[in-house]
C-alpha cells in the first residue's frame, strides 16, 4: 500500500506548489520590478534577477521626487495602525473575558449583536459613523479615525479573543483565584500570558485591516492636507504616470513591508499549544 501513499503525497506536493506559484508570483514580480532599472521595467523577457541590473533608484526616486511626503504618510499609517491595535485589544480583552467567563443578564443578546455587527460591511457603517463623529467633533483627524475603526475591529477581535478564552480551562483560573488572586490579577497573570499567541495574531490582523484600509480613511481625513493622509490613500491619490511606474512599485513595496515584518515577528508567538500540560496527563 506504500506506493499508493507516495502517489498521493506527490499529488499533494504538486497541487501545493501550483497554488504557491500562483499566489506568490505577483509578489515576486512586484518585488523584483521595484529594483529593476527603468529600461527593463516593461521587458517581458526579463524574469530572473540575473538578467538585469538591480538598483535602488526607484526607491530613492519615490521618496524624493514622486511622493515627497511618503515618509510622513508612512508614519501616519504606522501611528493610526498601532493606535487602533492598542485601543482594540484593550476593549476587546475585557469584553471577550466577560463574554467567555462571566454570567450576566443580556449576555446572549450582547454576544449575538457582536456577531451581527461583525457581518456588516464597512460601507454600511461609514455614513452614520461619520455623522456621529462630526457631531461629537472628532471627524477629520487621526484619533477620530482610530475611534471609528473600533466599530470594525472590536467585534472581530472580541469574537476571536472570546473564542480563545473559552479554550483555556476554567480550572486554571480557579486555581489562581484560590491561590489568592483577584479577577483582575487572574486576567493579568494567567489569562493574558496564556493568550499571547492569539493576541499576536489578532494584533497582526487588526494592523493589516487598518494599514490597508481605504474607505474610512478617505472619508474621515478628507479635509486634511495630503501629507496628513495615510499611506493607502496618499499613494492612491497620485495617478501613476508611466514614467513614475518604478517609483510606484517601490512605494507599493514600502506599503507592504511593515505587514511582512510584523507577520514574521508574530509568527513566533503564533505557535499553538501554549496551554499544553495544564490539565490531565
Amino acid at each position: 500500500m506504500n506506493w499508493k501513499k507516495n502517489f498521493k503525497n506527490v499529488f499533494v506536493a504538486i497541487g501545493i506548489s501550483f497554488l504557491l506559484i500562483i499566489a506568490l508570483f505577483p509578489f515576486y514580480w512586484l518585488a523584483f520590478s521595484s529594483v529593476k532599472v527603468l529600461t527593463d521595467l516593461f521587458e517581458p523577457n526579463v524574469i530572473f534577477p540575473w538578467e538585469t541590473t538591480l538598483t535602488l533608484f526607484n526607491y530613492e526616486f519615490a521618496v524624493t521626487k514622486a511622493y515627497p511626503s511618503l515618509i510622513s504618510l508612512f508614519l501616519n499609517s504606522l501611528y493610526i495602525s498601532i493606535l487602533s491595535v492598542v485601543l482594540t485589544l484593550t476593549i476587546a480583552t475585557f469584553g471577550a473575558y466577560a463574554v467567555a467567563r462571566m454570567k450576566f443578564r443580556g449576555k446572549a443578546l450582547i454576544t449575538n449583536s457582536i456577531l451581527l455587527i461583525y457581518t456588516f460591511p464597512g460601507i454600511i457603517m461609514i455614513i452614520p459613523l461619520f455623522v456621529l463623529a462630526s457631531k461629537l467633533g472628532f471627524a477629520g483627524n487621526m484619533t477620530g479615525l482610530a475611534i471609528a475603526y473600533l466599530a470594525q475591529t472590536v467585534p472581530v477581535a472580541l469574537y476571536m479573543m472570546a473564542g480563545y478564552f473559552q479554550t483555556i480551562p476554567a480550572e486554571i483560573e480557579e486555581a489562581a483565584l484560590i491561590d489568592g488572586c483577584s479577577r483582575f490579577e487572574v486576567i493579568r497573570k494567567i489569562t493574558l500570558p496564556l493568550s499571547l499567541p492569539t493576541i499576536a495574531s489578532i494584533s497582526l490582523f487588526i494592523f493589516m485591516i487598518v494599514w490597508n484600509e481605504y474607505l474610512f480613511a478617505r472619508t474621515f481625513l478628507l479635509t486634511l492636507s495630503s501629507d496628513q493622509f495615510t499611506l493607502a490613500i496618499g499613494l492612491a491619490r497620485k495617478t501613476a504616470h508611466l514614467a513614475d511606474f518604478g517609483a510606484y512599485l517601490a512605494s507599493a513595496m514600502i506599503l507592504l513591508t511593515p505587514v511582512i515584518i510584523l507577520y514574521l515577528l508574530a509568527e513566533k508567538y503564533m505557535v499553538k499549544g501554549l496551554t499544553a500540560g495544564a490539565v490531565k496527563g
Binding site: L194, A278, V279
Partner: peptide, 16 residues
C-alpha cells in the same frame, strides 16, 4: 482569597 484554603483539582490545573 479571603478564606485561606488550598485546592487540588482533578485536572491538576497547573499554570502551563
Amino acid at each position: 482569597k479571603q478564606r485561606d484554603i488550598a485546592m487540588v483539582f482533578q485536572s491538576y490545573a497547573l499554570y502551563p
